[in-house]
Design a protein around this nucleic acid. Structure first.
Lengths: 190, 190
DNA sequence: GTCTATAATTTGATAGAC
DNA sequence: GTCTATCAAATTATAGAC
């Protein structure tokens, strides 16, 4: 196989998987490189072979998460009506909760952004900017809204969804997320 | 003066002030007791005189924050119309951002709840429950909504406000919060 | 109430053998 | 790639003097 990878892709991905899980559970400062090592069955020194610094792990986790999230969203101009676009976007967040039982990675990181390495904080900001851009385009394209109005509603949606995940986790039930995604969010349409 | 306080109220409060500020900036695991000590001009050992454990500081910060927040909210059944009730509630969050330049304490803690001491996590949950209760009562009393509908909209509002503060902080501007509180939130009314 | 001193553990990271 | 061994620094917390 043609290779440009520096290290074993598999173990590297396992490290990122474990780190993502731990950040989404307890934040960036809530775990150590030793925790990561134990989770993937190696020693801390070996983790540092794959990623020289912990901040590097964080930055890589965000980059991968952002890319996957946008991939799953697809083309924002491809929906028949704003309702379908919104349902699609809400679905991405619902799956993050249902599939992983966890909050959005960047919701966690955004909350503690003042205590993050610069790279990690910057990646978090980019995630939000790209999501607002996607939502704004989706609402403008399929909802026939002005740019300003679309942006305003995109912001409301993103904020509500991030907040709903945090509330759900804190209150210990998924009912909370459904309370906001069933009905009320449709009011964003008008 | 009649005293039942164990330690100097002033220094104790300074410690809680510093801890609250730091949690709201970078999360519970983003600062140390030495950081607190430096902020209030004493040594770490003296911090432990006032609060034996760091978790104790966290729990005390939440308790005080929750009490103040509910005090500022007042009686949920005292508003002439749901619009006034909502404006009042949104105002409390806006002031938290404008006055302190910071996110809601429990928005941060809720995001990293899996990495918190049990007491601190429990306090966070209570804050959310009491806020949902207040909002539900306010919307039911002044909006003439059913309990179920009032709870659903209360959840949407709380989620949107918590999320908006996190987004604002992450994107580095207060415009984000205003984008959601001006207009769009009124759609929660119907 | 605050200090110095210190204990016990954890943390992020490196050196060098295999 | 992974290990053992180790480091320097940081962290929570305690003991005991003032």
């Amino acid at each position: 196989m043609p290779k440009s990878e520096v290290s074993s892709p598999s173990k590297r991905d396992e490290i990122l998987d474990a780190a993502e899980r731990m950040i989404r559970m307890g934040g960036y400062n809530g775990f150590s490189t030793r925790d990561i090592a134990a989770a993937v069955g190696i020693k801390a020194a070996s983790v540092h072979y794959h990623f020289p610094t912990k901040a590097g792990i964080g930055a890589a986790v965000i980059e991968r998460y952002t890319q996957r999230f946008l991939e799953e969203l697809g083309d924002p101009t491809n929906f028949k009506g704003a309702k379908k676009a919104i349902a699609h976007y809400v679905g991405a967040f619902r799956r993050a909760l249902a599939r992983d039982g966890k909050v959005c990675l960047c919701g966690v990181l955004g909350a503690e952004i003042g205590g993050l390495p610069a790279d990690v904080g910057a990646g978090t900001q980019i995630f939000f900017e790209k999501n607002l851009e996607w939502l704004k385009n989706a609402l403008a394209a399929s909802g026939g809204l002005s740019e300003a109005k679309a942006l305003s509603r995109a912001t409301l949606m993103l904020a509500a969804l991030e907040g709903a995940l945090i509330l759900s986790k804190s209150l210990g039930n998924d009912v909370v997320f459904e309370r906001i995604s069933e009905g009320p969010l449709k009011m964003v349409l008008d």
